[in-house]
Each structure stands twice: as C-alpha cells, then as structure tokens.
Amino acid sequence: TFEVERIVRKKIVHGNTSYLVKWKNYSSKDNTWETEDDIRTKYGDLVDDFEK
C-alpha cells in the first residue's frame, strides 16, 4: 500500500487540479501527479495543510 509523505506542488490544467505527491519510503524521482479528488478522498488533511 502506498502512503503519501507530503504534497510537493500543485498544478491546474483546464480547470482540473492535480498535486505532485511524494510517497513515503520512495525517492523523489518516484513522485507522481494525482488528481485532487483521488488525494482528497484519503488524504484531505494533507491537501488542506498544503493549501494554507
């Protein structure tokens, strides 16, 4: 199971928000862009903290 360590960046393309996710126990080269809906479902607190 993958676990988010932190959110690195945010991008908005054509009105759709995605977050660059750093995965726990993986290197930064393994970071992936994930949709806001996918990340918010399980890691809403991390998204809220990133947006502060």
Rank of each mutant, 00 (worst) to 15 (best):
T1K: 14
T1I: 13
T1P: 14
T1C: 15
T1F: 12
T1Q: 12
F2H: 14
F2L: 14
F2D: 12
E3M: 08
E3T: 07
E3V: 10
E3W: 05
V4L: 10
V4M: 08
V4H: 00
V4P: 13
V4D: 00
E5Q: 05
E5I: 05
E5M: 05
E5C: 06
E5P: 04
R6C: 14
R6M: 14
R6G: 07
R6F: 14
R6L: 13
I7S: 00
I7M: 01
I7P: 01
I7Y: 00
I7L: 07
I7N: 00
I7D: 01
V8N: 01
V8G: 00
V8Q: 04
V8P: 08
V8F: 04
V8W: 03
V8M: 08
V8K: 02
R9Q: 11
R9A: 15
R9F: 08
R9N: 15
R9M: 13
R9K: 13
R9G: 15
K10I: 05
K10T: 05
K10E: 01
K10Q: 03
K10F: 06
K10N: 07
K10M: 07
K10V: 06
K10H: 04
K11G: 05
K11P: 01
K11S: 07
K11Q: 08
K11R: 13
K11I: 08
K11W: 04
K11E: 06
K11F: 06
I12G: 05
I12V: 13
I12T: 12
I12Q: 08
I12K: 07
I12E: 07
I12F: 07
V13T: 11
V13Q: 08
V13C: 11
V13D: 07
V13I: 10
V13N: 08
V13W: 10
V13L: 10
V13M: 12
V13P: 00
H14L: 09
H14M: 12
H14S: 11
H14P: 02
G15I: 04
G15H: 08
G15T: 03
G15A: 04
G15Q: 03
G15C: 06
G15K: 06
N16V: 15
N16F: 13
N16W: 09
N16E: 13
N16Q: 15
N16M: 15
N16L: 14
N16C: 13
T17V: 15
T17N: 05
T17R: 04
T17A: 10
T17H: 04
T17W: 06
S18Q: 14
S18T: 11
S18L: 15
S18P: 04
S18C: 15
S18E: 10
S18V: 15
Y19P: 02
Y19Q: 01
Y19R: 00
Y19A: 00
Y19S: 00
L20Y: 06
L20M: 07
L20N: 03
L20T: 02
L20H: 02
L20R: 07
L20D: 02
V21C: 04
V21A: 00
V21F: 00
V21D: 00
V21H: 00
V21G: 00
K22E: 06
K22M: 05
K22H: 06
K22L: 05
K22N: 02
K22C: 03
K22P: 00
K22Q: 11
K22V: 08
K22G: 03
W23G: 00
W23S: 00
W23T: 01
W23P: 00
W23R: 01
W23I: 01
W23M: 01
K24Y: 07
K24P: 03
K24A: 08
K24F: 07
K24W: 07
K24M: 08
N25W: 09
N25V: 04
N25Q: 08
N25H: 11
N25A: 07
N25C: 07
N25G: 15
N25D: 11
Y26I: 14
Y26T: 14
Y26K: 15
Y26W: 13
Y26C: 15
Y26D: 09
Y26L: 15
Y26R: 15
Y26A: 14
S27F: 05
S27T: 12
S27C: 09
S27I: 08
S27A: 08
S28F: 11
S28M: 12
S28W: 14
S28L: 07
S28T: 12
S28Y: 13
S28R: 05
S28A: 13
S28Q: 09
K29P: 06
K29E: 12
K29L: 11
K29V: 10
K29W: 13
K29S: 11
D30N: 14
D30Q: 13
D30C: 15
D30E: 13
D30R: 14
D30P: 07
N31I: 08
N31H: 09
N31Y: 15
N31E: 06
N31D: 07
N31G: 05
T32P: 02
T32F: 03
T32I: 02
T32R: 03
W33A: 02
W33P: 00
W33E: 00
W33L: 01
W33D: 00
W33H: 01
W33R: 00
E34T: 05
T35M: 09
T35Q: 08
T35V: 10
T35S: 13
T35L: 11
T35I: 08
E36P: 01
E36W: 06
E36R: 05
E36C: 04
E36L: 08
E36V: 06
D37Y: 12
D37W: 11
D37A: 15
D37P: 08
D37E: 14
D37R: 09
D38L: 13
D38F: 15
D38M: 12
D38V: 12
D38Y: 14
D38Q: 10
I39D: 01
I39P: 02
I39V: 11
I39M: 15
I39S: 03
R40G: 04
R40V: 07
R40P: 02
R40K: 10
R40D: 01
R40C: 06
R40I: 09
R40W: 04
R40A: 06
T41Y: 11
T41Q: 14
T41A: 13
T41M: 12
K42Q: 10
K42L: 15
K42T: 09
K42F: 10
K42D: 14
K42M: 13
K42V: 08
K42C: 12
Y43M: 03
Y43P: 01
Y43A: 12
Y43E: 03
Y43H: 07
Y43T: 03
Y43W: 15
G44N: 12
G44E: 08
G44C: 05
G44L: 09
G44D: 05
G44S: 14
G44H: 10
G44W: 12
D45G: 10
D45A: 11
L46H: 05
L46P: 01
L46N: 02
L46V: 06
L46F: 06
V47F: 06
V47N: 02
V47S: 02
V47K: 02
V47H: 05
V47P: 01
D48P: 02
D48I: 09
D48H: 08
D48Y: 07
D48R: 12
D48A: 12
D49Q: 13
D49C: 09
D49W: 10
D49Y: 12
D49R: 10
F50D: 00
F50R: 04
F50G: 01
F50A: 02
F50M: 03
F50H: 02
F50V: 01
F50C: 03
F50T: 01
E51L: 06
E51T: 04
E51N: 08
E51P: 02
E51W: 04
K52P: 03
K52R: 13
K52V: 08
K52I: 09
K52D: 09
K52C: 07
K52Y: 08
